[in-house]
């Protein structure tokens, strides 16, 4: 088996998926490390589910390669992955336990796991109720239970907290954290609920229109969001040029009468001096705390 020498459990290279003339994924290079809780963020239709499906063999890539656990023999590597993609796929005429018994055969899971997993996801008391009569939240929990069968090394979960009430969301969040911290399970999870993701994610991937715009560690993101200089001036475009000379790596976003500078540590007094020297009228310079949600929205191409 061909294996790569790094520690990535998911590594894609130029992964592309097209349907006819429509490119759904465009040369995606994703990197998920062992032990990560990787929050995968993007608008509806950005390509999150498509990428997850490619990883799991539900769809075939048009171009590019995938490595799972460093290996290119994907069917074998997928034995170590539990997943929940889109809405849970269940045998609706069967009980929750029977669904688990069936999928346990595929996951090489011990039948004795089933009761404990059902209790783990809060379905310990559903008895003989058919899955077809479950609420969306219950189905979602059962989908997660199926993903957990066989003690997988990695979970790939697409919107796993959809349809859950606040208590259920907290339970699933705690469950994922426990799996990650106690059993070292790597988790790739997508969600629209950014606040919820932010509570557990160690690394983010942001996808927009099929392109992976950015991969960033959670702590780095926190730093970026905290260090933002907000400058009010009547010449934001000229000011941006001056600041670019001062801090070439800074991320500058200029508006009509202000600009935000992030990504590099700057002293406000030095910035003020340079702007004044350049003949720019500065009304105010303040440190602002950026909102994480705004950061994502900006990376995802603005508000939908």
């Amino acid at each position: 088996m061909e294996t790569s020498q790094n520690h990535w459990v998911i590594e894609t290279s130029n992964l592309t998926k097209t349907y006819g003339s429509k490119t759904v994924l465009d040369h995606v290079n994703m990197h998920v490390a062992q032990g990560d809780i990787y929050g995968f963020i993007g608008k509806n239709g950005a390509g999150k589910t498509t990428l997850m499906k490619l990883l799991l063999g539900m769809s075939q890539p048009t171009q590019g390669t995938i490595r799972l656990f460093g290996a290119t023999k994907l069917t074998q590597a997928r034995h170590q992955i539990g997943s929940l993609i889109e809405e849970p796929a269940l045998y609706k005429g069967c009980t929750a336990a029977e669904n688990l018994r069936r999928f346990a055969l595929l996951a090489n899971a011990d039948a004795s796991e089933i009761d404990s997993i059902l209790r783990f996801v809060g379905l310990g008391d559903v008895g003989k109720k058919k899955v077809g009569k479950f609420s969306l939240g219950m189905k979602q929990r059962l989908g997660i239970a199926i993903a957990m069968l066989g003690h997988p090394d990695m979970l790939i979960l697409d919107e796993p907290i959809n349809g859950l009430d606040p208590e259920g969301i907290k339970e699933i969040r705690d469950l994922l954290l426990r799996l990650n911290r106690e059993q070292g399970v790597t988790i790739l999870v997508s969600s629209h609920l950014l606040d919820e993701l932010a509570k557990i994610t160690t690394r983010y991937g942001i996808i927009n229109q099929g392109r992976l715009v950015e991969e960033i560690a959670a702590d780095e993101l926190m730093k970026q969001c905290q260090q933002k200089l907000h400058i009010v001036t009547d010449q934001p475009a000229v000011a941006a040029k001056v600041i670019k000379k001062l801090a070439p790596k800074a991320k500058i976003s200029a508006n009509e009468n202000s600009l935000d500078v992030a990504g590099e540590k700057l002293e406000s007094s030095k910035v003020n001096t340079e702007l004044v020297k350049a003949g720019i009228n500065v009304e105010s310079i303040t440190f602002a705390t950026d909102n994480m949600e705004d950061y994502f929205i900006q990376r995802m191409g603005g508000r939908a």
Partner: peptide
């Protein structure tokens, strides 16, 4: 029933 997803995804 879309359960084929679970089968393929299990490798």
């Amino acid at each position: 029933q879309h359960t084929i997803k679970n089968i393929y995804a299990r490798g």
